[in-house]
Design a protein around this nucleic acid. Sequence first.
DNA 1: ATCTTCTTTAGAATAATTATAAACAACAAA
DNA 2: TTTGTTGTTTATAATTATTCTAAAGAAGAT
Lengths: 136, 136
Amino acid sequence: MTSKQEFIEKLRNSCLRPTKQRINICEVLFNRDKTFHFTINDLFNLIKDKTGEKISLATVYNTVHAFHKKGYLKEIPINSNQTYFDTNVTDHHHFFDVKEEKLIDLKNEDVGPIEIQKSIPGKKIKSVEVLVKLED
Amino acid sequence: MTSKQEFIEKLRNSCLRPTKQRINICEVLFNRDKTFHFTINDLFNLIKDKTGEKISLATVYNTVHAFHKKGYLKEIPINSNQTYFDTNVTDHHHFFDVKEEKLIDLKNEDVGPIEIQKSIPGKKIKSVEVLVKLED
DNA sequence: ATCTTCTTTAGAATAATTATAAACAACAAA
DNA sequence: TTTGTTGTTTATAATTATTCTAAAGAAGAT
């Protein structure tokens, strides 16, 4: 259980003013035991349901992008028309259930170390992501 | 160098009528030495330049999707607003140069075997894709 | 209180993609 | 060849995800 006060500090630390909307979004996103995968649309609807208050879609976009930039959210590359985010920002990978359109976390140790044996001059590796697609 | 006749047969084998447009698209996509990464928009423009004939955008979409469905193209999950395709349909991975927005093939042996040590009941693995993002 | 700066908001704008329905081309059979 | 059927192309409209805009509102500092 994370308190409202912690969210306010979290926002302050990132030079984001702790507004009502941002705190609400924090509650929905981070006040959980388990990691949470979502699209902007999922989040938009969830906020309405959970808090009873509607936050403008533009604000949801702004806030998610701000959190992503600050490293509080991870963007997950899936081939889909919608962008997925993950509250688990540690280094890890994903299953994607193609039929259910659902993401499942894969711990780093479930995949093992990945050694990239090729390099591109002038470039360095920013991230290594494994996506395992699942079918029935 | 692949001949027009081969493309016609390729299309026939997939129950796709060999139309002028589809053959042109084949020429642009498959008549190359190296693997080719593209977005629909890239392809649309390239066709105009290379063949001098304009193919309707809707046809480009239809054809690319048909080829993808038949396994002649691979879709590559990158976080971007555009969908990327690859003429290399063998099992392999990718670098993505974030700044240049460019894809580079990574051979399977450049990555080494990936053992997924977790399974989801009722589901089997369809594909394992590694995306390595590059920065300067 | 007051002022400045940041944020929210509804709605408009943009961009990628998909749907539509009429004209057209490929194919098979006579 | 003609003819009929079915698949394909096309321009355009529709849809969807996302970003932009500009005005109203809230936070923070003085």
